[in-house]
Structure formats: C-alpha cells, structure tokens
Design a protein around this nucleic acid. Structure first.
Lengths: 141, 141
DNA sequence: TATTAAATGTTAGCATACAAACGATAAAAC
DNA sequence: GTTTTATCGTTTGTATGCTAACATTTAATA
C-alpha cells in the first residue's frame, strides 16, 4: 500500500521528531552538566578520557564530528583549560590531545552528570520501552 | 539497582545516539530534497502550506523554532522566492507569511520528497519496528 | 484613562555542523 | 628514489539553534 502523496504530516515524520527529541535532550543537558559544557564538548571530553591520548582527527572520528567541527570544539575546551594540545614529535602533522592531570578529578563528575542526563531524557518511558527505544535508535547510525 | 558511576559508555547514551540519527537523516535529506532546501526550511515550508497564511512567530511555534531561528529561515526562503512576507494591516507588529502562487506547484513535490526521506531514514527497520520506534520517539517531545 | 503586561519581530553573540579548498607531512606504489 | 596517494590540521562560508537584550505595538489591568 502506497502513501498518498497529496498529504504530509510534518508532526509524524521521523526527521522532525528527531529534531524535537534533540531539543529536549539539549535543554535537559544544559540544566545538569557542569562547567557549562555543551553536548559536543562533553562527548569529546569523555571520549578523550576513555582513550587517554588521541590525535584531533581521531577524536573527531570517534565522536562523529567533522574535522572543522572538532577543531572548534577542541579550541574552546583548550581555552577552558580542560584539554592540553601538544604536537607529536613522531608525526609533525598530528596534534596530541590529553586531559591535564589537574583536571582528572572532573571525569567522574562528568560520568555522573551523563548518566543523570540520559535518565532524565528517557524519563517518559518505562524500563522496557527505554531498552527497545535504544536498540532501535542504534539502527539509525 | 544503581548505575556504576565510574564508567560511561558514550556510544550507548541516548543524546549521542540522537545526534547520530540526526546526522543520518540530514545526509539522506540532502540527497533527496529539491531546491537545496534544509530540513528546517523544508519544515517551515510544508507547515506554511498546511496553514495557508501565518505570522512569523506562529510558524516558528508550529515548527519548534526559536524566534531568532525562524527569522533566519524565513529570510533565506524569501531570498529563494519561496515565501512572501507582507505586513498585517490589522496588527503592525505582525508579518504575514505565504507561499507565492507561482510556487504552489512545488508543494506536492515537497510532500513526495518528504515521504521518500522518511522511508529512507527508517529503512534499517522492519515495519513493526518503525511503528514502535515512532511511537516511542514521540514521547520525547 | 494611565499603567502594566504581553506579544511580535529584530539584532548580536556563541556554539555546533558540514562542504570545500588548501598546505604540510607521511605512507604507499612504482 | 621518485611519484603518487593518503592523512592531518586549518580556514572560509553557509545554516541552524539558542540566549539575551531591545523597540514597537497591542492587550489587560488598576
């Protein structure tokens, strides 16, 4: 059975609903996250914490950010003192990123905030719904 | 049972997955949509087609766009000749938006493209999965 | 009626997000 | 060993998306 193409319900379309869900998440994120981090800054930081050290391009790939996007994100994190940037002596193209030792203690706080934000975002769902939703959402990568 | 807060899997978090799903949708959108419309330009246009005439602020509310965002979107649509902007004689604050008569014929093409994009975006899912996913996604508004 | 409050649209600033083009460097192919 | 290709990072341009402050106009209230 084919859809009628003389009608279109914007409010039922997956793209529109994804935008709304993102808006919801971003608003909750902002209320909970420490240090006024943005979602992308947060993603870059926790992934860098996971990897330990990493080049800028690789961190971008691991967090699904364009080279131009990760560049700006790292620059703002650097200004906040949350990321160190050093040049790789073995590869003059590379910039090696790391979290300064003095800032290591914030990582557990980021994890805690992250869990809280995820729970808040999914709070309109029951436990089995959350599980189903995340499973299906992962298909859209 | 409480989550361990000494670990955090970015790739399993709803916010990150929503960003990835949005990226997927945007890429497909761009391949299919006519006139190089962006997702927000598209949303504003089809909602305006649905409403017939509308003030700028109301169109923003109906498409979940901030006043500053809808302002820029309408300005770009106006430059493309896809939206007319006229001042309301009964309310000097208002700008009345409409789709020019010469452009009315593009609306069915937008609907067709919109259906195609939604189908492509959800193509990794089975029919029942699509239904479940959209039902759950609507809870995150 | 005068004051207050609310709605509409504008502008500026910050932060993604992506495309495209570029120089420098390193790796692969010949 | 030289040429070709690929990778890394930078810069520019366009388009959201939000906050905040603002002027104008309209509606509500005292």
């Amino acid at each position: 059975m084919k859809e009628k193409e003389n009608s279109y319900m914007l409010d039922d379309q997956v793209g529109y609903l994804l935008r709304l869900a993102n808006q919801r998440h971003s608003a909750l994120f902002q209320e909970v996250v420490p240090l006024r981090l943005t979602p992308t800054q947060f993603a870059a930081l926790v992934k860098l914490a996971e990897l330990g050290e990493c080049s800028q391009n690789e961190l971008g790939r691991r967090t699904a950010m364009d080279v131009a996007t990760i560049k700006g994100v790292i620059e703002r994190l650097r200004k906040k003192g949350l990321v160190d940037v050093n040049s790789d002596p073995n590869d003059k193209r590379r910039a090696i990123l790391s979290i300064p030792k003095e800032q290591a203690k914030i990582v557990p706080k980021l994890f805690e905030a992250g869990h809280k934000i995820s729970n808040l975002t999914l709070s309109p769902m029951t436990a089995p719904e959350k599980k189903t939703f995340l499973r299906l959402l992962k298909k859209l990568r």
